[in-house]
């Protein structure tokens, strides 16, 4: 690259770039910006759904197999642990869904400025929490 009128090789470029950038990585003082928070939750919710995909398939299977196994699925869904599972999966799905739509908007250059990115992050958090509460109140 060209810097101050002279051509530098990669090593020199690296040194120039590194010396001119302030570094502040004290984990007790810095915090994740809001869009970063939404982003890591997108990853966590996706991993959570992958980890419990077997349970969803199992529920779908027994709910479709026979009237007896359908009742078994109903009993599970109405149990304490079943409701907790459904609420957890609902949050994971809703957050992943809305945060995913947000990423698609970013891909089309919508909301890429700092204010827009923060605003859409709040919208994603609000929609997923309100949606989870709606699911929670309807099944509890």
């Amino acid at each position: 690259m060209k810097q101050h009128g002279i051509w530098l090789n990669n090593k020199d470029y690296l040194q120039v770039a590194m010396s001119s950038r302030p570094k502040h990585l004290n984990l007790y003082q810095i915090r994740l910006p809001l869009p970063g928070f939404v982003s890591i939750l997108h990853r966590i919710s996706g991993f959570g759904m992958f980890a419990f995909a077997w349970a969803i398939l199992w529920l779908l299977q027994i709910s479709l197999q026979s009237p007896e196994s359908y009742e078994q699925a109903r009993t599970f869904v109405h149990s304490w642990i079943g409701k907790l599972f459904l609420i957890g999966m609902s949050w994971a799905f809703l957050h992943h869904f809305f945060a995913g739509l947000r990423f698609l908007l970013l891909d089309t250059h919508v909301g890429v400025d700092l204010q827009g990115a923060r605003r859409t992050s709040w919208v994603v958090l609000a929609l997923s929490i309100v949606g989870t509460m709606m699911v929670g109140t309807s099944i509890w």
């Binding site: 779908l60 299977q61 197999q65």
Partner: peptide, 13 residues
């Protein structure tokens, strides 16, 4: 394996 399981679930009835 999940994909095969899903096919089994969807077409077993």
């Amino acid at each position: 394996a999940y994909a095969a399981w899903a096919i089994q679930i969807l077409w077993s009835n």
